[in-house]
Design a protein around this nucleic acid. Sequence first.
DNA 1: ATGAAAGCGCTAACAA
DNA 2: TTGTTAGCGCTTTCAT
Lengths: 344, 344
Amino acid sequence: MGRQVSRGVPFMHRVTAKDVATRAGVSVATVSLVVNDKADGRVTEQTRRRVLRAVESLGYRLNASARSLAMQQPGAIAIVCPELTNPFYALLLDGLSEVIAGRYALNLVVPGSMGDYDTATILRAMEMDLAGLILAAPGNGVLTELNPYCPTLVLDSPGTHRGFPAIDLDVTHAGRELARHLTEQGHRRVAYIGSVVDKASFRRRREGLASGLLEHGATLLPNDLLVDRVVMEAAEAGFPQAWQEWERAGVTAVVCADDVLAYGVLASAARLNLGVPADVAVAAYNDLPMSSLTSPPLTSVAFPARELGIQAGEALLSYIEVGGPPRNRTLPTRLVPRASTARP
Amino acid sequence: MGRQVSRGVPFMHRVTAKDVATRAGVSVATVSLVVNDKADGRVTEQTRRRVLRAVESLGYRLNASARSLAMQQPGAIAIVCPELTNPFYALLLDGLSEVIAGRYALNLVVPGSMGDYDTATILRAMEMDLAGLILAAPGNGVLTELNPYCPTLVLDSPGTHRGFPAIDLDVTHAGRELARHLTEQGHRRVAYIGSVVDKASFRRRREGLASGLLEHGATLLPNDLLVDRVVMEAAEAGFPQAWQEWERAGVTAVVCADDVLAYGVLASAARLNLGVPADVAVAAYNDLPMSSLTSPPLTSVAFPARELGIQAGEALLSYIEVGGPPRNRTLPTRLVPRASTARP
DNA sequence: ATGAAAGCGCTAACAA
DNA sequence: TTGTTAGCGCTTTCAT
């Protein structure tokens, strides 16, 4: 039997092919053939049975990393994403894992503590041996001097993919749609809640909105509220103070870089009785499934998160197995109008 | 230089210690010493520099799985969870990853297609070499004949952990609290929306509620609506038909096994104008952050998901590094009342 | 049909 | 101070 030391702790022995071989009275090579279903004409049915019995009784499981080391073919895919608590990434992961399930293991890499991920985070991911790598919404500058050894795909980082194949969301168009809707509802002065982290997708969300508003004769105020994490609590905490200023400036609509920030605004406004949305609209990017239930109602632009995950999975799989980078794509977004009109 | 074939595709060569050694004119052993910061008195500052320069110029990164194979000390932790789209697990993961960040890589294992995970899913996880394993809310029977080679922790599976160390949520108490609240609000006939998958946590949620209602002279109807996945859409689709029956039976409160199911009920009710919650209360387990914004309002029992992740991480770390299984714990839950009263 | 041996990238004991 | 060697668990060629 024997025991194995795991960081100083005695623990159960991990059964190896050698154990199985000994038990079955064969060599490890034979065990390898049997467990990999390559026993066709190369192993007697007799011994195959014997090996299988030994596998069963010992509870043998292949060591995947030893296997991929020997085969020179990694069996895992890693995805690096900034913020797990945002359902956008959960949905993305859900779609992705559906596609790669069974074919590759999924390594999830998230920034250690709070804050966005950086180059070091990616390098940490690249220490595992990877068949493929997905970088979701990398911050600006993160992609510089990064030369991966495996097929790599960049998600939701419009315009800044530095030669990496990429799948983006049409966030600029989303911003213009939002602008059109708000101006149609009579809003003329709009404030913005964004993030301190600088990434292409965020930048374009604001730019699309700003240019759209300008086109329709409305304005986006320059003094944004910037949160340090894209979580509900951050917007909830920061909104009251920002609103004081915005209200004086005649703002009638607040646009958030993400639905979860809008949740924070709604929570904050409800708690403080700030008159939202009697005459103030809250709008956002990334319409999450539960956003249809918010009160007051929220207008936002739907991002196809799960679909993005699926397409990313398929693109990466073809990149890995067929070869040649997949062509870049931009997935459409769709305005979901729910906001009230501005008071005249 | 050379190139490496990745499943038939020519791709960039992955730089190895041997490449660095050649470039620096030293042996791989020296490289190993340098990159692992064990060069104290064992390597000249001179050669150390040379190696570091080679590392830099070639872009060398350690191969983590080869490393853990050689050291007989795995560097990854895996968590198996049923449903990524439920923010409960996202929050759990967030807490967990905060704790293990930098110390271990996190392998996320989810059931291939839809449906809950089974023993095969866990075995797949156990093929990676793992320092520790976390099983979140395993279905009944999944833990049988499972003998892991590494420290293993079971989460939210009250009463059914088969000797594994475990951290649970006090779901039974949660159910009784919910029952007390609903009866105080005047509700006497309550219906339930649960899941077809049989797991201890779900079972107790219903049992706690049922016994609590009984105690207060109210009843839980026997004909539950059972969804096949704990997602908003499933409850949204199933609710209208169930409601027809429940309404005839005089039901004034609907309790859901999870907040996301309650979201589905609210969406469905709003869409079909079913009179919820003019005189009907919707209550649920697992109060998610955004639940405070739902309209109509939702009463639910808050589950400390992020805290569960943190405690799981700490417990597993101590199990791995200090040794000896952590003692079992049950985290408290807290009723968050928001529901309206029953019409007399 | 089966086994011995080499090698994947790395670490660790031991030589030099 | 540095290199040589063996070995981690596995696959794969090549003898037998």
